[in-house]
């Protein structure tokens, strides 16, 4: 399904090129292609068992597995994915609250600015 080229280790970083041939994105020349570089001196990356793509944290790996390889997951892996999704949902709600706050501040801020200066 995927094809990764490993470049020789002349630098501490490991560069990999990815070409994903999934049905959804195979018709676009660019979207299926991206590159990852893992810093050589950092923490070992979490790698996906199905495609080998590295992730810096385990929740991102769980989300990736659920989104890209859902059909190949077994029950426990699917549960992990659902848990990661639930956590992401909470984080997103928090983010939305903050974003709404910023929007409200922007609105009233500019309202006052225009009332004073215009």
């Amino acid at each position: 399904m995927t094809h990764a080229e490993y470049l020789p280790n002349t630098k501490p970083e490991r560069l990999q090129r990815w070409q994903i041939d999934s049905d959804v994105i195979s018709w676009h020349p660019l979207m299926g292609q991206f590159e990852t570089t893992v810093p050589g001196n950092g923490a070992p990356p979490n790698e996906c068992d199905y495609c080998g793509r590295p992730f810096p944290t385990s929740d991102r790996l769980d989300l990736h597995r659920g989104i890209e390889h859902f059909d190949r997951l077994d029950e426990s892996e699917r549960e992990t994915f659902e848990a990661a999704r639930a956590e992401e949902r909470d984080d997103l709600s928090q983010f939305r609250l903050k974003a709404l706050g910023v929007l409200v501040l922007l609105y009233f801020g500019f309202l006052f600015l225009y009332a004073i200066f215009a």
């Binding site: 660019l30 979207m31 991206f34 990852t36 810096p56």
Partner: peptide
């Protein structure tokens, strides 16, 4: 974002 995607990937996409 502490991601492993290269800057070139960002720039292209």
């Amino acid at each position: 974002t502490e991601t492993y995607l290269t800057p070139e990937t960002f720039a292209l996409h």
